[in-house]
Amino acid sequence: MVGEISALIAAGIWSASAIIYDKILVTVKISGTLVSFYRGLVSLPFFAVSLLIFDPHLPQLSSLHWFYLVISAILGITIGDTAYFLSLQDVGVRKALLLQTLTPLFGAFFAWVFLKESLTVYGLIGIALTLLGVVWVITERTTAGRSPHLLRGSLWGILSCAAQGLGAMFIRDVLENSDLNSLWSSSLRMVLGTVILAFWLGYKGNFTLSALSFPQWQAITGAAFGGSFVGLWLHQTAFQFAPVGIAATLLSTSPLFAVGISVYLREKVTWRSLGGVVIALVGIGLLLIR
């Protein structure tokens, strides 16, 4: 049960972190790109301390694996995470998290295209159900939540899932064919992705560290510690102690936690929204059946 509990706690932490980031985006009115950079910046010391304590020796990587690592960082962190924050800014927590359930779908698609991994009948049904659940919620007309730019936010969410799914292809090759472990890979990807994002913000003239107040920096730090650091450890623990399919499915339950938090905050949650989340999660479960 250790793996299953770890997966559920990670999903809950990611939902809470998303709500914190959402409140900052609404309050400060800054770009999701800048929030993505801030998240990466404040999470780096946590990774650095962990490496110094648990694994201070940098693994030896070939030039090709370094190239794959950089590509994975650009896709997963610079593009994928930033697109997620832009989606969060446009459509709010519940819909942004629900869109993230498409990531396993893109992972399966890219594995089918590039690695020639076959899709089972369950997988095809799972893809259909996941898409149905997401579309069912995204197209709901309701005053609950924030969706001023629904199409744009949905496209950002889809781009995020596609980039993360493709980036996972590259990092998986490195993890399977080198001495790089999950802690080092996560740390290096966060460093590379954040540095590249900083150069992009500098190029666009949006690089600044003064957009947030001290309490807001505290909130960002707490969300980064929980979502990017503790969530990572729980993510790895889930896959270590639970079957892959069960762990991946439970890790995808963040939208359910977001609905629960919304109920706690006395926000309106419709049956259609809840039903769409459940349908999408059932689809993910089928997609992971081998």
Rank of each mutant, 00 (worst) to 15 (best):
69 L>K: 07
35 V>T: 08
137 V>M: 08
259 V>Y: 10
190 M>V: 12
270 T>G: 09
197 L>E: 08
91 V>M: 10
198 A>R: 07
144 A>T: 03
236 Q>M: 14
230 V>M: 15
229 F>K: 04
274 L>A: 15
99 L>F: 12
158 I>L: 03
224 A>W: 09
117 E>A: 07
63 S>W: 14
190 M>S: 10
149 H>E: 04
269 V>K: 00
118 S>V: 10
86 L>P: 09
126 G>I: 00
248 A>I: 06
70 V>P: 00
192 L>E: 07
198 A>H: 06
210 S>A: 10
35 V>E: 05
85 F>S: 02
10 A>H: 00
114 F>Y: 13
137 V>F: 07
152 R>K: 15
265 L>P: 03
261 I>H: 09
117 E>V: 07
239 F>T: 13
221 T>N: 00
172 R>L: 10
272 R>T: 11
1 M>E: 09
189 R>L: 11
116 K>R: 13
46 F>I: 12
173 D>Q: 13
211 A>I: 00
226 G>M: 03
254 S>E: 12
154 S>K: 01
53 I>D: 02
29 K>Q: 11
10 A>L: 00
33 T>K: 14
167 G>V: 05
221 T>C: 00
116 K>P: 02
20 I>A: 14
275 G>C: 01
81 D>I: 11
102 L>I: 10
194 T>R: 05
108 A>L: 14
264 Y>C: 08
219 A>E: 10
137 V>Y: 04
68 Y>F: 15
227 G>D: 13
125 I>T: 13
89 Q>V: 00
185 S>E: 11
59 P>V: 06
192 L>D: 05
142 T>V: 10
116 K>G: 05
256 L>F: 11
139 T>G: 08
240 Q>D: 14
61 L>T: 01
283 G>H: 03
248 A>W: 04
72 S>H: 09
76 G>I: 14
148 P>D: 09
64 L>V: 15
28 V>S: 02
179 D>C: 14
122 Y>N: 15
13 I>E: 00
41 L>K: 01
135 V>G: 03
122 Y>M: 14
24 I>A: 01
224 A>V: 10
3 G>D: 02
56 P>T: 03
84 Y>L: 14
221 T>V: 00
166 L>T: 10
229 F>L: 13
149 H>P: 00
28 V>H: 01
261 I>M: 12
97 L>P: 02
107 G>I: 01
257 F>P: 02
261 I>F: 13
178 S>C: 06
270 T>H: 12
112 W>D: 07
23 K>G: 10
135 V>H: 06
91 V>N: 02
60 Q>H: 14
28 V>P: 01
248 A>H: 06
117 E>M: 08
233 W>A: 10
74 I>G: 05
280 A>M: 04
117 E>P: 05
117 E>F: 06
274 L>C: 09
2 V>W: 10
36 S>A: 15
162 A>P: 11
38 Y>L: 07
187 S>W: 12
272 R>D: 07
119 L>R: 11
226 G>F: 00
